[in-house]
C-alpha cells in the first residue's frame, strides 16, 4: 500500500495528473514534479510560512499538506497569482518599501498578506502584524513588510476593490 497514488490537481488553472508517493509534500510536488520553484521549502514543519500556497482559495502550509490530500483541488502558487496580475499592487508595494532582500520568504509573505487584505480589507497595523506573524523573514526585520501591506491596504481601499472575500 506504499504504492504511488494517482492525483489530479489543478495548479494555476492547469490540470496535472501524476502518480505521487503518499509522503510527498505539496511543496515538493510543486517544485520537483511541476518545476514551480517559487514556493519555498523552509523549515518543513509548519513554522516559517515560506511554503504558503492556496488550496481552493485558502492559504495553507505546503509542508503540512500532502500532495495526495490536494487531489481534486485547485491549487494556486506565486507563479499563478503573479502571471494573472492578481497581486501586482502588493508586489509593487513590496518593491517600493524595500520589503524584500534575499526574496526567499517573499512568495509566502505575498500570499499570506493578500489573504488578510481580502478577508479584512480594513485591517489595522496590529492585525497585519498578528496575521503575518506566522511567516519568517530573516532579512528585513518585518517593518518594511508591514509597511508594504499597509500601503496596499490603502491602495485597494482607494480603488474600492477591497471588499470581496475570496474564501
Amino acid at each position: 500500500m506504499t504504492d504511488k497514488v494517482l492525483t489530479r490537481i489543478t495548479v494555476n488553472g492547469v490540470l496535472h495528473e501524476r502518480w505521487v508517493e503518499p509522503r510527498q509534500h505539496l511543496v515538493d510536488y510543486l517544485r520537483d514534479e511541476l518545476g514551480l520553484k517559487g514556493t519555498r521549502s523552509g523549515c518543513e514543519h509548519g513554522v516559517c510560512g515560506a511554503c504558503t500556497v492556496r488550496i481552493d482559495g485558502d492559504i495553507v502550509r505546503g509542508c503540512l499538506t500532502l500532495a495526495v490530500q490536494a487531489d481534486g483541488a485547485r491549487v494556486e502558487t506565486i507563479e499563478g497569482v503573479s502571471d494573472s496580475g492578481e497581486i501586482a499592487d502588493l508586489q509593487h508595494a513590496f518593491l517600493e518599501s524595500n520589503a524584500l532582500q534575499c526574496g526567499f520568504c517573499t512568495p509566502g509573505m505575498l500570499l499570506t498578506a493578500d489573504a488578510l487584505l481580502k478577508s479584512e480589507p480594513a485591517a489595522s497595523r496590529e492585525q497585519i502584524r498578528e496575521h503575518m506573524s506566522g511567516n519568517y523573514c530573516r532579512c528585513t526585520g518585518y517593518h518594511a513588510i508591514v509597511d508594504a501591506v499597509e500601503s496596499t491596504r490603502e491602495t485597494r481601499r482607494l480603488a474600492g476593490c477591497g471588499g470581496d472575500r475570496h474564501e
Binding site: 510560512g49 485558502d58 502550509r61 499538506t65 499570506t112 496575521h131 506566522g134
Partner: peptide, 12 residues
C-alpha cells in the same frame, strides 16, 4: 480561535 496558530494552519 485567534490565538490558535496562524491563518494558514487554521484553514486546515
Amino acid at each position: 480561535v485567534p490565538f490558535l496558530a496562524h491563518a494558514a494552519i487554521r484553514n486546515r
